[in-house]
Nucleic acid binder design. Sequence first.
DNA 1: GTGAAAGCGCTAACAC
DNA 2: GTGTTAGCGCTTTCAC
Lengths: 367, 367
Amino acid sequence: MPGKRDGKTGLCRRQESVQTMDRPASGGRNGRVTIREVAEDAGVSVAAVSKVLRDAYGVSDVMEAKVRASIAKLDYRPHTAARAMRGQTYTIGVLLADVKNPFFPQVIDGIDDGLAGTQYVPFFGIGHGSTSMEKAIVHAMVDRQMDGLIMIGQRMTDAEVEATARQAAITVIGHHAPQATLFDSANNDDERGGTLVVEHLIAQGYKRPAMITLRRADLGQADVSQRREAGFVSGMRAAGFDDSAIRIAAAADDIDDVTATVRMLLEGPNPPDAIFGWADYYALEVLSAVRALGLRVPEDIGVIGYDNSPPCAYTQNDLTSIDQSGREIGRNAARLMLERIAGRKTAEHFVVQPRVAVRNSTALRNS
Amino acid sequence: MPGKRDGKTGLCRRQESVQTMDRPASGGRNGRVTIREVAEDAGVSVAAVSKVLRDAYGVSDVMEAKVRASIAKLDYRPHTAARAMRGQTYTIGVLLADVKNPFFPQVIDGIDDGLAGTQYVPFFGIGHGSTSMEKAIVHAMVDRQMDGLIMIGQRMTDAEVEATARQAAITVIGHHAPQATLFDSANNDDERGGTLVVEHLIAQGYKRPAMITLRRADLGQADVSQRREAGFVSGMRAAGFDDSAIRIAAAADDIDDVTATVRMLLEGPNPPDAIFGWADYYALEVLSAVRALGLRVPEDIGVIGYDNSPPCAYTQNDLTSIDQSGREIGRNAARLMLERIAGRKTAEHFVVQPRVAVRNSTALRNS
DNA sequence: GTGAAAGCGCTAACAC
DNA sequence: GTGTTAGCGCTTTCAC
């Protein structure tokens, strides 16, 4: 490092090492109060304070009261790094595949709900849709001794996740791993959701639905876009479509590519009369592309998304979408995480059922 | 804690304390490789390894090569908590006021740019628009010995920020503090931006602009919404408006309240013919409310936002907005942060000039 | 029920 | 240039 900022700190430390009898002005290094000072103030041992901090067994009520009073009086907050050396960090790392997806805020709210009232604090790492970045973030979280990791929409393989599960408790969201034993998961039934899309479109009178899905080199069958595709396919088959009539076009996570893909579909032979965007943020771009072509929604073309995120309700979007209860998923992910940390060794996989949130973008029957 | 997950760990530790001469299978606690093992493998001292890790002065090329080889061979990654006890954590905490603001992703990209190629990793805390939560997160970051904090759109007072600045390097974004000496800031000129809005609307032929701003109990003059209001006011005055004709309505961060406020403005006496939403995510809700009322944009009413975030470009929004170069702000915030950590003691306040990104939502002259 | 003391894995002062 | 070593602030035995 090209410089230090501990000129003052070094001084502090030197003063302390002289072991002056009068207690230093306000704590040790960095001016922070330490457990030792709390113990002195309360007239008890350091061990006693530590026990109170962790709600551990073996403290009398009187002692606990004294300790809590001193903690409050000195405004003491334990030094997480020091705790990490021996015990826990009370930190949950949350890996977000990206920050642009308007669905994630709901999940985050749910995680906050589930962690409220505990000592655990969530910190977020942002993967920007890159698997190598996701791995780097997971490493950084493990290096910082985070007690557990919640991974939202990540694309690491099950094997990679399991390797990490040996270092910290893990819950995945937006990644199906019903057979995994070393980590938990919380999801909606994406396959069912994909089928719901088809059922809804057909019921509204659309005749030629198509899907625009996520194009990425490293997608596995466990990822949500793939599950939704599978559900879309089986829904189409159940509706009597021949496999050759089931169209799924993949577009990169980029508005220009989504726009080009929509044009390709609509200007090609036998154009669809309804488009399913695999997630809302794709469907909103589909809406943009469709409107740019001068087509009317829902008369000329229906559009449906997935996630039922807040922008769907805006009048200019008025987008039908599959609701997957993000907040409940987040809440359950936090619960599973806390249970794991508390000692559960068996895996649990939470699944919630999706439902259609009907809006104007697929209202062919009423138009 | 109602249970432990260190049955195995405890075992490991006991084995080690027996000081067996044969090196343990693969590292100590948690199976992690330690600096001691790297030193043994490379045949050098732990101090030497530590120096290599920190690019510190006093290592020969030969030794460095040996150390790096062992690090790679053993897949060693330093234990951040242990580093934190004596030195740095190489962690930058980023406080996001909320996750819903579509402008923040650009800033985050900029921060990532600025941190790329360094050892520093950003971790994000999410404030959900609550000042008490923001304070809790800042505490959690300081408790975890993060080397620096970047705070985006936070609403703590300068005094509170300065108190924190004694514990960690600080850069604020979306908060103006030109006179602050203990921390840095990176912003666009929000006051100028507010004036640009008026200049643009008037030039387009709108006669009665109004502004919808953020309502919160704890806003200070330093916050961006207030700066934009000030710029709006001075722009209106410069355009010849009487103070009684300058209308600024405050709405809570909630689509229902924004909608109600828009109705109040448009259905009241002397309705505006253009509305400025203090940030894009407000302007998009204004657009929704206006469309719900059956008004045409831009003919019946113009709408303009601030931030020029990606949704502005969608055809269904086509929203004129003030561009404040979020990515550049983020990049500079990271730069300022690294400089502070490297030892800079004087404050720096980076300001970029905003510009109008013209789209259809204010195209009165062409309609 | 309580406290003394041994570390956790690093960093940095200091001796060589 | 290199290695030895004393802690950083906690947690956790283990005596008492």
